[in-house]
């Protein structure tokens, strides 16, 4: 019996950390490991999900369908999952092929204020018997009460659970406790949390979520993920076991997956200055590599780009604004001293 369901997004969010270049061998090796460790759901694909391989976000090495098929071959008990943001993938081009490739779970996501753009896709998947979850991204941007209103829509569309995503790694544990508790008391479906580690709080925030009643944690092996990475799967499992939770997972196998498979795919997730600034500013974690590139190309400080992105309140998927902002900053006169201040980020 699992007290907490661990969703493994290593082969989805982890894709951000390696510019979406998972090879077939990477995928089959890790899928085998996840199956061996007893992972209930393994989510596979481009970092931004089905149909997101693009010039805007970066092209995947392999097509979505290819990635899903490779993973599916290794999975028996572990359910194969995919991720979809409406506005990127479509039913015809992306969802139907993913279902045909053997997807049994679907994570449908939108910006935290826009849950009603998920209706078509959640209903479509739920009707076809997929284990369907709805995800509110960048959830630090609105209040607990507003999140509950959005989460209720997801529940009404037929999702089995609602996950709050800390896409910017901006939360402190108190925020997580309050928001998760509000959802838990207001919903009849399960509540979950997906952390990022920009402020070094991924484990603490995931613990806070579980203590507040979350039944699902979305994590990645070795923390492999966008920006400063995610909640490190094998670590949170160790912590939960120590806290007395029951998890049907092979803990030693999880450590082996991290040590023997993921360490060869991506580097350890150090919290670099771009990711740290991004966490403080509450800007989407996945922007980091794009910000670094634009910073080099247009000769402007990555942190200034982040301050401007915070002002513009950009949401996930708006990587094109980075170019816009960087070009504008280049054309402006040298920024004033006060523009660099920490106050601009808080």
């Amino acid at each position: 019996m699992n007290n907490v369901i661990i969703i493994d997004s290593t082969l989805r969010d982890g894709s951000h950390a390696i510019a979406h270049q998972f090879t077939a061998k990477n995928i089959s090796d890790y899928a085998k490991g996840a199956e061996g460790a007893g992972i209930p759901i393994l989510v596979v694909g481009h970092g931004n999900g089905l149909g997101a391989s693009s010039l805007q976000l970066g092209m995947s090495l392999l097509s979505d369908t290819k990635m899903l098929k490779v993973a599916k071959k290794e999975l028996k008990k572990t359910k194969l999952g995919a991720f979809l943001i409406p506005g990127f993938g479509t039913i015809k081009n992306d969802l139907d092929p993913a279902i045909a490739a053997g997807c049994e779970a679907m994570m449908v996501a939108s910006h935290c204020t826009e849950a009603n753009i998920m209706r078509q896709h959640i209903e479509y998947c739920a009707k076809r018997g997929l284990l369907t979850y709805g995800i509110l991204m960048m959830s630090h941007m609105i209040s607990a009460r507003e999140l509950l209103t959005q989460a209720k829509l997801i529940q009404e569309y037929g999702a089995r659970g609602v996950l709050l995503m800390d896409s910017a790694g901006a939360y402190l544990p108190e925020d997580v406790s309050q928001k998760i508790a509000t959802l838990v008391s207001g919903l009849s479906v399960d509540v979950g949390f997906h952390a990022h580690n920009n402020l070094g709080m991924a484990i603490a925030n995931s613990v806070a979520a579980v203590k507040a009643g979350a039944k699902i944690l979305d994590c990645t092996s070795r923390g492999l993920g966008a920006g400063a990475g995610n909640c490190q799967l094998e670590v949170i499992v160790a912590v939960l076991l120590k806290m007395g939770y029951k998890l049907d997972l092979d803990f030693f196998k999880l450590m082996d997956n991290s040590e023997k498979i993921i360490s060869k795919i991506g580097q350890g997730q150090v919290i670099g200055s771009t990711s740290l600034t991004s966490g403080l500013a509450g800007v989407f974690s996945g922007f980091a590599p794009h910000i670094k590139k634009a910073s080099r190309k247009f000769g402007v400080d990555a942190r200034d780009i982040l301050i401007e992105l915070k002002k513009r309140k950009v949401v996930a998927g708006q990587e094109d604004i980075i170019i816009d902002v960087a070009m504008n900053l280049r054309n402006k006169k040298k920024a004033k001293k006060e523009d660099y201040s920490i106050e601009a980020l808080l």
């Binding site: 506005g87 990127f88 910006h111 826009e114 513009r312 949401v315 604004i321």
Partner: peptide, 14 residues
Amino acid sequence: IIILNPSEPPIVMH
């Protein structure tokens, strides 16, 4: 790719 952005004041179509 279609993005809805809720920021206030509202963004100009971009």
